[in-house]
């Protein structure tokens, strides 16, 4: 039982790390530009598809992964230049309309090019094994690698935000948006940078997840909503908040699906417990979010929202 728990804890952490990669850029976009971007999940999906396509042509995992980064960065830049840039000063409603339209357009393009059927991406040879975890249980190396890579990215982001000039601007912007506009000419470039880097991180997440999950047109949708939950719990504009909230959401979601029915069996008939567990487990993270909001309307690490 404990081994199972440990295994699921690792799975949860790995899922959380992915959520963090997608959420990191988006929380900054929300926090600094007060911009609602529904299309961010699509970039995660684009990352997955580009990875699948590159693997199809090159057959080399590492080369494909290296190519995903500039491609998704470029997609982010193009979207910023063509669409997002024109919407910063507009109402949230216009932003929702435009980015929702982009979701439809990009999802449909993906279907036209690659079809609706899920694609699979092969794991690189050197990461396809597993290591002993505890007792007879083993854990896949690839998942450990995902956790490691995600943590490295988190540390890298922490360094950029805590130690560099760009990071200083980001922190100032998340704390007080009008302060950023007072800083003058850097703003347009800063926005563009945040956007493109966020797109690249999301695309990267979509690429590294492709050997574990399959690549399909719905993958962006499911991660987007959980990303929102992460951002809300962590506090809009806070990368640190996004990190802790992502791990929390990943672990609660994974453990809930596994242990919810088991715990319910203590108080219910097995069949009813199984049904109730299946029904309640997917709702757990939303209940968690509601609870956090009830106590802290601005999220765990968010700046206080004015009344």
């Amino acid at each position: 039982m404990f081994n199972l728990f440990l295994l699921q804890l690792l799975n949860g952490a790995q899922f959380g790390i992915l959520l963090f990669l997608v959420a990191a850029g988006l929380t900054l976009v929300f926090g600094i530009m007060d911009f609602i971007n529904i299309a961010h999940g699509v970039l995660y999906m684009v990352g997955g598809y580009v990875m699948a396509m590159m693997m199809g042509t090159t057959g080399n995992f590492w080369l494909s992964l290296a190519l995903v980064l500039p491609v998704t960065l470029a997609v982010g830049l193009v979207l910023e230049l063509l669409v997002f840039r024109r919407l910063y000063d507009r109402s949230h409603l216009d932003q929702v309309l435009a980015t929702f339209g982009l979701v439809l357009v990009l999802s449909e393009l993906v279907k036209i090019f690659w079809g609706s059927a899920p694609l699979s991406v092969a794991m690189p040879e050197m990461l396809s094994g597993s290591v002993p975890l505890a007792g007879p249980m083993r854990y896949p190396v690839y998942r450990i690698a995902v956790i490691g890579v995600g943590l490295s990215v988190a540390i890298g982001l922490w360094f950029v935000i805590a130690r560099t000039r760009v990071g200083m601007l980001l922190r100032a912007g998340a704390a007080n948006r009008s302060m950023v506009s007072a800083l003058g000419t850097d703003i347009n470039r800063l926005f563009m940078l945040v956007f493109a880097a966020g797109a690249m991180l999301a695309g990267f997440a979509g690429a590294i997840v492709s050997p574990i999950l399959s690549v399909d047109p719905g993958m962006g949708d499911s991660i987007l909503i959980l990303t929102f939950v992460v951002i809300v719990i962590g506090g809009v504009g806070s990368v640190k908040g996004a990190f802790y909230a992502a791990l929390l959401v990943g672990i609660v979601d994974t453990l809930g699906r596994m242990f919810g029915p088991i715990l319910l069996r203590l108080v219910m008939e097995p069949a009813a417990a199984a049904q109730a567990g299946r029904t309640i487990a997917p709702m757990l993270v939303y209940i968690l979010m509601a609870a956090v909001l009830f106590w802290r309307p601005a999220g765990l690490f968010g700046r206080k929202v004015s009344q």
Partner: peptide, 30 residues
């Protein structure tokens, strides 16, 4: 709960609650 928040928070929270209801019925096999 949602009305304790404003702006992009409100949009995201209502979206998340909508998904919560969605998943409830998705997993309701009966």
């Amino acid at each position: 709960i949602s009305l304790r928040t404003r702006g992009v928070y409100f949009i995201m929270i209502t979206l998340a609650f909508g998904q919560m209801a969605f998943f409830f019925f998705v997993s309701f096999s009966a």
